[in-house]
Simulated assay, not measured.
Amino acid sequence: MKLSYLILLTIASVAFFYIQLWDDKIVTPLYFSLLALNLFFAAYTKNINMAHITGFILIIVGANRLVFETGLINDVTPSNNLLLQGLLIYGTSFLFSLALALILIFRVQLSRILSSSKNIELTHFDGIFHWIFIYMALVNLIAMAEYIGWSYFEMKSWRFIYNNFEAFIYIGWALSCGALLTMMICSSKDNRRDEVGAL
């Protein structure tokens, strides 16, 4: 089976399983645990490309989560201004997702700035992860536009993404989890192939 088919099959399988969970109290710790496991596995196998991809995702997604968990957005938003609330909530998530997408697009260049390793190279996963976070940025942007239409222009029918926001975000996280798991599987296979080649 070709590597690209294996990657797509694993991502789809994990994404399907992950979407079934559909509970923030399960989904969030699972996502961060998988990111931490990937980072540990990358360090253990000395796979600098996987470590940097996972590290960038963990830092940016973690920072985004921290902003909301600490109540920073709620503290700076007046409770009577619905428009400003929506702009800050969806705008912040949009900016984090867009920043991460851009970081992952230029991941190889950033990795070479951060490390002098000669093993830094473009991987199959550099072509996957940035699309996931472009999708997440688009979901947040559309939700923000719908929220503005609903709260400011009283367009009450503009609520498809807004009403299903968690579902769309879970889909992005599910795809990300599938890609992370596949990255570990592929890295493990590459390591075994290198060991056999060395014998």
Score class of each variant (00 low, 15 high):
I53Q: 02
L102W: 07
N49T: 12
V67G: 03
S187G: 12
L138K: 14
T28Q: 03
H52C: 04
V139I: 14
M1Y: 03
S116D: 04
T54V: 13
A42N: 04
I53N: 09
G127W: 01
A42H: 00
L199R: 07
D23I: 06
L88V: 01
W173D: 08
T10C: 07
F133D: 05
T54S: 15
F16D: 08
N38Q: 07
W173R: 05
I148M: 11
L110G: 11
K118D: 14
A12Q: 11
L35K: 10
R107I: 10
M136C: 07
T77G: 08
N38G: 13
I7R: 08
F16W: 13
L6R: 10
M1Q: 12
W131G: 13
I89F: 05
Y152C: 11
W173F: 15
W22I: 02
S187P: 00
L114M: 11
M50N: 12
K46W: 02
R112D: 06
Y44G: 05
A174Q: 09
T92V: 11
F41D: 02
A99T: 08
S116W: 09
I73M: 05
Y90E: 09
A198L: 12
M144N: 07
L3T: 10
R112E: 08
F160Y: 11
T28L: 10
V196K: 15
L72H: 01
F94H: 02
L87I: 10
T70R: 04
Y162H: 14
I73V: 13
Q20P: 03
A179R: 00
L110Y: 08
E154N: 14
F125E: 14
A143G: 12
G172I: 08
I48F: 03
L122V: 13
Y90R: 07
N81Q: 04
I134G: 02
I105K: 09
I142R: 04
